[in-house]
Amino acid sequence: MTHAVQLGDIIQLRKGKKALEVYDQRVNGAMPYIQIDEVRGVAPQKYAHDAKGVIVTPVDLCIVWDGANAGTVGYGVDGLIGSTVARMRLKAPDEWDTEFVGRLLQSKFRQINDEAQARGATIPHVDKSKLEAIVIPRIDRFEQRRIATILAKADGIRRRRQSALDHIDLLIKGEFVARFGSPQKNEKNLQTAPISAFGRVVTGNTPPRKDLENYGDAIEWIKSDNINTPSHFLTPSTERLTERGRAIGRTAPAASTLVTCIAGSPNAIGNAALTDREVAFNQQINAIIPHEGTDPYFLYCQVLVGKPLIQAASTNSMKGMVSKRKFQEIEFLLPDNEKQVDFGRFFSKAINMAQNLRADLEASEELFLSLTYRAFHGEL
């Protein structure tokens, strides 16, 4: 890579502003209102009108300027940008390809975001001087277009595999409802029973931290973060208990369902994951250890689909909490064991398919990252 310029040399930066008039649907004279989600590729949800607003066109680049997502870059959008977004307009669009520059900046997201977080402000925001100092390789525009096309194809493979994974999750939930109906509505008039009839409910705890001998390497100690997982099974915990800690703690065997019942956000109440090994867990979590005659996969999926029932049992606090007593009393659908087991077989097949797709997705992500690195180091 023989020649390079700084980003500030090739773009004009302009911060957006809060629009004067915002609408939930398109009205005469209104334009799509571009905020964080729209920069990330979500279709516009709101429309705005402001004669003094900052307009972006599909050949401009947008960057999220403030907040946890600071540094997120998008392009190909058209509308008015909000106050959390900035426009980057190419000074010489005949010399620079929007997608080429955009993909290079997307590859720098972690760097830009870390610099925004490090500024010490209550709300992170992009460091303008460091953003404009990012080095851009100066290459022929035809070559820029070639590189952007290669990266777009690799990204397309990655996105299609992610979409297939998302569809499997929807398929699992849809199949449950197709067979048994909604746990909230029970439109198939199935027999119901409290959660306590499906399994033994155990609330976790925290062995005293002042006694360092409670913490070691004997058994994982699960927290709510390990339940917020895309794979349906618990993610590995970074913290573990000793055998002494295990004796004080609460544990659940494999095939249990762990549910978040105390959380900093009401939306996290009812998050669930399956165990595929014995684990200990903290007091924010209730475990359902299935009784004999309860299919563990059926039970887990009912928790997944019936999350609104769990949230409805939460206290009306800003954080949210479902007591063990209320949790045990929540009414779930109770089809006969044969139907539960049959659904469990379906779930197992879907999970196996998802695991294969996830392996393919990881491979496509590695390919994309490798191509991106090579592209911007003159090796593609």
Rank of each mutant, 00 (worst) to 15 (best):
I219Q: 00
G293S: 03
L241H: 04
P236E: 09
V279L: 08
L212H: 14
G249L: 02
L258N: 05
K210Y: 13
H291G: 06
F281P: 09
T251R: 00
H291A: 11
K188E: 09
D295M: 09
A197I: 08
T275K: 01
L234R: 08
E278R: 05
E213C: 04
K210P: 03
W221E: 08
E213G: 05
L299V: 06
D276K: 13
N186F: 11
T242E: 09
N286I: 04
V259E: 02
H291R: 04
Q191D: 14
W221D: 11
T260G: 07
K210S: 15
V202W: 00
I248P: 01
E239V: 14
G270C: 03
R240E: 08
R200M: 11
I222Y: 05
Y215G: 13
Y297N: 12
G245N: 02
R250K: 15
I269S: 10
Y215R: 02
A280W: 01
H291L: 13
G204V: 11
S237P: 06
A263W: 00
E243M: 12
K223N: 13
G245L: 12
A255L: 13
L190D: 08
P194M: 03
S196H: 08
E243F: 12
P208G: 13
G264R: 03
I289M: 05
T238M: 09
A252H: 01
G199T: 05
Q184S: 13
T229W: 03
A272E: 15
S256M: 06
I285M: 10
L241C: 12
P253I: 12
R246I: 14
A273F: 03
T192F: 04
V202R: 01
N267W: 06
R250L: 14
Y297G: 04
A287R: 01
P253D: 07
D211K: 05
D276I: 15
N286M: 02
F198V: 09
L241T: 01
L241I: 08
V202H: 07
I227Q: 10
A254L: 05
E213N: 13
E220N: 10
E187Q: 15
T192H: 05
V259G: 04
D295K: 00
V279E: 09
L299T: 06
Q184Y: 05
G264K: 06
N189V: 10
L258T: 10
A263M: 10
G204F: 04
C261D: 09
Q191C: 13
T203R: 12
S231G: 11
S256Q: 01
N226F: 07
F281E: 04
R277T: 15
C261E: 02
K210W: 10
S224Q: 01
